[in-house]
Design a protein around this nucleic acid. Structure first.
Length: 387
RNA sequence: GGAGAGAUGGCCGAGUGGCCGAAGGCGCUCGCCUGCUAAGCGAGUAUACUGGGAAACCGGUAUCGAGGGUUCGAAUCCCUCUCUCUCCGCCA
């Protein structure tokens, strides 16, 4: 701080003296001042270098500091301390033992894990026929619902972004090992549409009257899943590449709490229309993400595994991302810009939704019933049967 | 991939070393004026950090794509990078 003051004082001196020099017609008379300023400039340069280094250290540190949990976020150490908020729907009773989706999908010939591994490696899958069609149907169904039904603006962003974008939403610098990175040029495959969509307004001052701004985006997502070896190795649950429809809102700070509830409700609506039972959990302070201040996870019922699995994560970030990315608005025409709040959530993870449809819609004969709302997107198909 | 042209305020656009945080225009805001509207007139109109003040406000520093260099002094000169545009080639 003191260093900054001194540097600025010297700069002020240099500026005024330089101004005087400019007014001296006879340059020989200005020689002594020029020499003096030459020295001042050297000192400024030294100080600025030091300042820059200090600033870099400070910023580097600040970028690794996580967001503060919202007061409404329950305290806790792990996912075991998450709080059940509500449940919807009843897991069906089966007259047979429900099978996991990887068996159903392989038997129907619509999911080919082996081929995915051949083409690329572990955690990649080839969809075939009705499986590929179902994935596409879900994307379209979700986008139509959120745009026509919930008023979001559809956007289709790049699937790779630069380092600044990753820093704006908080993936970098701390979580580089979770990302796929291209070397030349240095781009990152997005781990979620949250990254490009939130960065749409990076460095902007938004009009208060435009808030909230609501975007819906379909993108594939790419994750290294470092540190998850041996976890969910079978099936579609944990892939290096998966599809997702993401909802993103930029809101006035006073509206963000209510908008998180809205957005979570918008995501839940997808499951309700598909007739898939789910529950909503409030993540505790120990399980919440680095950038989030409050998070609801929506977990869908998977009878093949007799458990609820996360299918959407809806978070408010407060002004955390807005600070990093410089996204602001003005309360009054002339007032100082303030940071907006950002909110986002999956609406929904498409692959996991397909999993839920296979497992919840499975019949004793191995076929799978397609939810009514999806049939128009499936060319009228009501049931997936083995070919 | 080859050749060239650019990047300046909300927008357009001037500015080739000091009088430039930046002409002019548009837009916008406030005021005036005109019996409505349109036109006209006047003033204002970037951001961050920072010093003083209760505040209105006054002062300092930085920012003319980004970073570095030359210089007492850079929007202006030099280097590197990024992006945009035009032409040629290639390509879904």
């Amino acid at each position: 701080m003191a260093l900054l003051r001194e540097s600025e004082t010297l700069k002020a001196l240099r500026n005024t003296v330089s101004d005087e020099i400019s007014r001296i017609k006879d340059k020989s008379q200005a020689q002594d001042k020029i020499l003096e300023m030459r020295e001042v400039s050297q000192r400024i340069k030294g100080m600025d270098e030091e300042l820059k280094q200090l600033e870099e250290e400070l910023n580097g540190f600040l970028l690794t500091v996580p967001n503060l949990p919202d007061p409404a976020t329950p305290l806790g150490a792990s996912e075991n301390d998450n709080v059940l908020v509500r449940t919807w729907g009843e897991p069906a009773d089966y007259s047979f033992t429900p099978r996991p989706h990887w068996e159903i999908g392989e038997d129907l010939g619509i999911l080919d894990f082996e081929c995915g591994a051949k083409l690329t490696g572990a955690r990649f899958t080839l969809y075939r026929g009705a499986g590929a069609r179902l994935e596409r149907a879900l994307i379209n169904f979700m986008l139509d619902l959120h745009t026509d039904g919930h008023g979001y603006l559809e956007v289709l962003p790049p699937f790779m972004v630069n380092r600044e974008s990753m820093q704006g939403t908080g993936q970098l610098p701390k979580f580089e090992e979770d990302l796929f990175r291209l070397v030349d040029p240095e781009f990152f495959l997005i781990p979620t549409a949250e990254v490009p969509v939130t960065n749409i307004h990076r460095g902007e001052i938004l009009k208060k009257s435009d808030l909230p701004i609501c975007y819906a985006a379909y993108t594939p997502c790419f994750r290294r899943e470092a540190g998850s070896y041996g976890k969910d190795t079978r099936g579609l649950i944990r892939q290096h590449q998966f599809n997702k429809v993401e909802l993103v809102k930029f809101t006035h700070p006073s509206e963000s709490a209510a908008e998180l509830e809205n957005l979570t409700g918008n995501a839940e609506k997808v499951l309700q229309l598909l007739g898939l039972p789910y529950r909503v959990m409030a993540l505790c302070s120990g399980d919440i993400g680095f950038s989030a201040s409050k998070t609801y996870d929506i977990e869908v019922w998977l009878p093949g595994q007799s458990c609820y699995r996360e299918i959407s994560s809806c978070s408010t970030f407060g002004d955390f991302q807005a600070r990093r990315a410089g996204i602001r608005f003005r309360e009054e025409e002339k007032s100082k810009p303030e940071f907006v709040h950002t909110i986002n959530g999956s609406g929904l993870a498409v692959g996991r939704t397909l999993v839920a449809i296979l497992e919840n819609g499975q019949q004793e004969d191995g076929s799978v019933l397609i939810p009514d709302v999806l049939r128009p997107y499936m060319g009228g198909l009501e049931r997936i049967v083995s070919r």
